[in-house]
Structure formats: structure tokens, C-alpha cells
């Protein structure tokens, strides 16, 4: 991606300094802390990180769907230019499913068990378009074919429990496509599926993106998927972004020690015979996140400021940013 295009690109999702908190162990804790993200039209941004680092909460904040004791504390979120946090409730409803759709990890439970799959897609269509029931049903049938559900007409009348996991995820995707959104947020869309089905669903997402020009915010902890699908990558650790940039830069030349550790721990990455490395320690729960750099207590190269001062963004290149004191020091030392 050329820099000129990057500057001119049109953003469908823009998150600035988002902080979202939950009451945990008696105190409000920011499980998402000053996170910034951008997704341009037609591109795929992968949000990567270990379980519990705040990926889903970030996505739900963007949809204004953070479950109840949770609270978006600060930051701005724009979807297609609309400020999500200040939009009136009814406007926000129009944004959801229309400008942005979301699919979830658990196709087993994410569909309403007592409604037919067709009815659920029809509802999605009719919420945003004034069309007759019959017309919406016809469209739903077309969507089913488009997402590769065989025998689409008959499947409209199936209940979720009558379909396999992969088929259910296709129904979820059909529902998400109902209004041709410009942005699709996919929260671990394949984690609950077995490997061959995973590949099919990823292929489906790729082809849909190509055909519809849709942007995707892909949430995953699977670096393999990132490799296949993402244009850009944001790595998240303990509620903060650690590193962010084009896929080739972040996966090819990672700068943040956490990203490096993450990549080294991948089975496919290690040279034959080399031992898989693991990042020492485990991801702590939000109540035990360190005060300086969140990664400082597990970081192999942590030095003096790391456990007291939070790192700011350091630009490795115009499009590649890293939140790390060590990187800032090295770059600062080499530049002047």
C-alpha cells in the first residue's frame, strides 16, 4: 500500500483512545485502555492477541454493545464518519446491521434457537429496508446461496439446531451481509469450528470481501489466519495495543518483544529441530496488570522505565507503530 493511498484512504472504522472498563474484584478496571484502530474501506485489519486481552470488548465497544456493568469511559469511535458514542439510540440501531455487522465466535449459541434461520435473516433485512416479507425472504434465499448454503430455499425453514456448526456460521454471515455493510466485524469466526470448515469459512470471507468490497475487522488469536487474510495487523496485549502496522511489517519484522514472542511460539515458525519458544509466565487477569508497560513483568528485555512509565507509540515507519520503551530507545539512539 503506497503512502499516498494510505493518507487518502477512506476510513470505515476509526477508534481513537478507546477505554472501556468493567468492575472486577470491586474496582473499575480498564480492560481496554486507550486503544486506537483504523480500518479503511475494503481492507482487512486483524486484531490479534491472547485470550482475555480485550479484543471482544474493543469490538463490542465499537458496536456500542458492551454488556451492562461495562462502560465505555473515553475515546471516540467513528463508523462511516458517524460518532458512535454520541449517536441517538435509534440512529445507532440503524448503524448496526446496516453500516456495520458483526459475527461471533459461537455459531451454536449466537442464533436464536426458537426462530428459523430464514426468519432471523428476514428480520435483519426488514429492520433496515422497507420490503415485504416475501421479498425479504427471497433476498434471504439469495444470501443463503451466496454464502454457499446448499439447498438454500429449504434451509430457510430450518432451525439452528438442525444445522452443523459450519452451516450456522454461514447463516450468521448471511445475516451480517443482509444490508451490504461496509464493515464486517468478525470476532473469532472460526475458533469453534474444525479445521476443514475453518478453511471454508475463511475462503468464503475472502471471496465475499473481494466481491463486495467490504472492510473486515478480523479478531483472532490465530496468526495463521492473519497471514491468510489480513492487510494490516494490530497486536493487543492486556488491554493495550502493542504493535500495529501492515501485515508484512508486523509479521515479517516484528519489533515489540511480545509480537516476537508470539510469533516464535508458533509451531510453523520454528526451524526444524528448533525448540518452540514460549513467552515466560501467563497473561495476568486485569486486576494484576502492571502499571507501566503491561508486558513488563514478562518481557525479556525490560529495563528501568518499563515497569513505571507507559510506553507511547513509536513510529518504526510511517505505517508501523510500536508501543515499547526498548524500541523507542533503539530508534532514538540510531536516528540522530
Amino acid at each position: 500500500m503506497s503512502e499516498a493511498r494510505a493518507r487518502a484512504r477512506e476510513l470505515v472504522l476509526e477508534v481513537r483512545d478507546l477505554s472501556t472498563s468493567f468492575p472486577i474484584d470491586g474496582a473499575r478496571r480498564r480492560v481496554v485502555d486507550r486503544v486506537s484502530l483504523e480500518v479503511a474501506a475494503g481492507e482487512t485489519l486483524a486484531l490479534v492477541g491472547e485470550s482475555g486481552c480485550g479484543k471482544s470488548v474493543t469490538a463490542l465497544s465499537a458496536m456500542r454493545l458492551v454488556p451492562k456493568p461495562g462502560l465505555v469511559e473515553s475515546g471516540t469511535i467513528r463508523i462511516g464518519g458517524k460518532d458512535v458514542r454520541t449517536l441517538p439510540v435509534t440512529e445507532m440501531r440503524r448503524v448496526r446491521g446496516n453500516d456495520v455487522s458483526m459475527i461471533f465466535q459461537e455459531p451454536m449459541t449466537s442464533l436464536n434457537p426458537v426462530q428459523t434461520c430464514g426468519a432471523q435473516v428476514v428480520e435483519g433485512i426488514r429492520l433496515h429496508h422497507r420490503v415485504s416479507n416475501a421479498e425479504a425472504r427471497r433476498q434471504a434465499g439469495a444470501l443463503f446461496s451466496q454464502v454457499g448454503i446448499p439447498d438454500a430455499e429449504a434451509r430457510l425453514d430450518a432451525y439452528p439446531h438442525q444445522l452443523s456448526g459450519g452451516m450456522r456460521q454461514r447463516v450468521m454471515i448471511a445475516m451480517a451481509l443482509a444490508s451490504r455493510p461496509r464493515l464486517l466485524i468478525a470476532d473469532e469466526p472460526t475458533t469453534a469450528l474444525d479445521v476443514t470448515i475453518q478453511a471454508q469459512i475463511l475462503e468464503l470471507l475472502r471471496s465475499l470481501q473481494r466481491d463486495l468490497g467490504m472492510a473486515i475487522l478480523l479478531i483472532t488469536h490465530d496468526v495463521g489466519i492473519v497471514n491468510e487474510l489480513a492487510d494490516r495487523v494490530a497486536v493487543m496485549y492486556a488491554g493495550r495495543i502493542a504493535e500495529e502496522g501492515p501485515r508484512r511489517d508486523v509479521l515479517g519484522a516484528p519489533r515489540h518483544p511480545y509480537t516476537q514472542g508470539l510469533l516464535r511460539s508458533l509451531p510453523g515458525r520454528a526451524a526444524p529441530g528448533e525448540r518452540l519458544e514460549e513467552i515466560p509466565g501467563v497473561v495476568p487477569p486485569p486486576s494484576q496488570w502492571p502499571s507501566g508497560c503491561r508486558f513488563s513483568n514478562r518481557c525479556p528485555i525490560a529495563f528501568e522505565p518499563c515497569d513505571s512509565i507507559e510506553p507511547e507509540r513509536t513510529a518504526v515507519s510511517a505505517v508501523h507503530g510500536v508501543w515499547c520503551h526498548a524500541v523507542a530507545r533503539d530508534l532514538g539512539a540510531s536516528e540522530p
Partner: peptide, 8 residues
């Protein structure tokens, strides 16, 4: 959550 996400 799905229902809300589609705009209900």
C-alpha cells in the same frame, strides 16, 4: 447480542 448487533 446477535439480535442487537443486527439493529433490534
Amino acid at each position: 447480542r446477535t439480535a442487537r448487533a443486527k439493529g433490534c
